[in-house]
Design a protein around this nucleic acid. Sequence first.
DNA 1: CTTGAAATACTACTACG
DNA 2: CGTAGTAGTATTTCAAG
Lengths: 176, 176
Amino acid sequence: MNATKFRRPSTAVTTAAAVPADPLQALDRIDRAILRQLQTDASISNVALAAKVKLSAPACLRRVERLKESGLIRGVVALIDPKAAGAGMLVIIGVVLDRSTPESFAEFEKAAQMVAGCMECHVVTGEFDYFMTIRTRDSDSFNRLHAEQLLYLPGVRQIRSFMVLKEILSTTKFPL
Amino acid sequence: MNATKFRRPSTAVTTAAAVPADPLQALDRIDRAILRQLQTDASISNVALAAKVKLSAPACLRRVERLKESGLIRGVVALIDPKAAGAGMLVIIGVVLDRSTPESFAEFEKAAQMVAGCMECHVVTGEFDYFMTIRTRDSDSFNRLHAEQLLYLPGVRQIRSFMVLKEILSTTKFPL
DNA sequence: CTTGAAATACTACTACG
DNA sequence: CGTAGTAGTATTTCAAG
C-alpha cells in the first residue's frame, strides 16, 4: 500500500485566502438585484427585468447568461404547490443505520433516492445518520410508505418520524 | 361564550369523497408532461415546450397559464447554487420551547423567519417542537449564528444541531 | 370546451459604436 | 454598456372539431 495515502496534508493556512473568500463579492449591486428578482419570479421578461435593475435589455441579458454559465444560477424551475398536487403532508424522518461502513451508506443512499416523494436526504452529525424529508398525501399514505418502503431500506436500524404539523417557512430564496 | 364553538364536528366520512380525491386526477397526460418539464427546466420556450408535448403553441400556452392560475404552479424561480453563493454549509436544527402556549409559538415563529439563511421552519410532532434548516458559509459562521441569534430566539429551551456532512438529495421536483 | 392556423405585437438576440 | 436592427417568440383572433 502506498504510504503517501496516509501522509498528513499540509495545513496551508496562508494559502486559504487564495480560494475565493466569497464568490458573491464578485457580484455588484446589479447582479444581486437580478438574482433577488429571479429567485422571487423568473417568469419576468428580460426587458422588464432590465427596467427593474435600470439597465438596457442586452446588458441585462448578458449578465443573466453570465450568472447561468458561472453556475451560480443552477436552473430555472416551476414550483408546484404540494397541497394542490395532493401531497399536503410533510414528514421529516431521522434514520440510524445498523453498521457505519462505506458499503452500508452507499447502499442506503442509492435506495433512499428512489423513495417516492423523498425531497431531501442528508448525511448528518449527531444521533442520526440521515435526515430525510418526504412529501405524501396524508397520514394513511405515509403509514403505507413507512410500512412498505422505509422500514425495508437497506441497513436501517431505526427510523424516527417527525410529522410536520405546520409549515412556517419553506423557501428556495437565498439571502444575498 | 358560544357553545357551538365546542360542538363536535360531524365526521361525515361519506362526504369525504366529495372533496377532490386527487387534484392531479383532473390533469391529463399532457398537463403532467408540461409539469414534469417545467419542474426540470422552466427556461424552455413555449414553442419548444409545445413541441415536446405535441401541441400547438397557443394551446400549450393556455394550459400553462391555466396551471398557474389554478395555483398548482406556485411560481417560476431561479435556483441558486449554495456553494457558488458562499453558503456551502447546511445545518438542521431541532428546537424545544420552554412553554407550549400559543403566544410562545407565535413569538418564536415570527423571530425564526428572520434568521439569516433559514430555509425551512416547521412545527413537528415528537421530541422537538420545531425543525429548521439553515444555510450558512462554514462552521465558523454557523457558530456565530448559533451563539448570537439562535440561542436568543424567544422561548427556546434547547437547540440541537445536526450538521449536514453530505447532501444526497435536495429537489423541488414533485412526483407526478 | 379545446384545438390549430394565421396575423400582430413584443421580445430575445446580434452587430456595432 | 448602449443603440439599432433582425430573427424569433409570445399572444390575440378566429374558425373548426
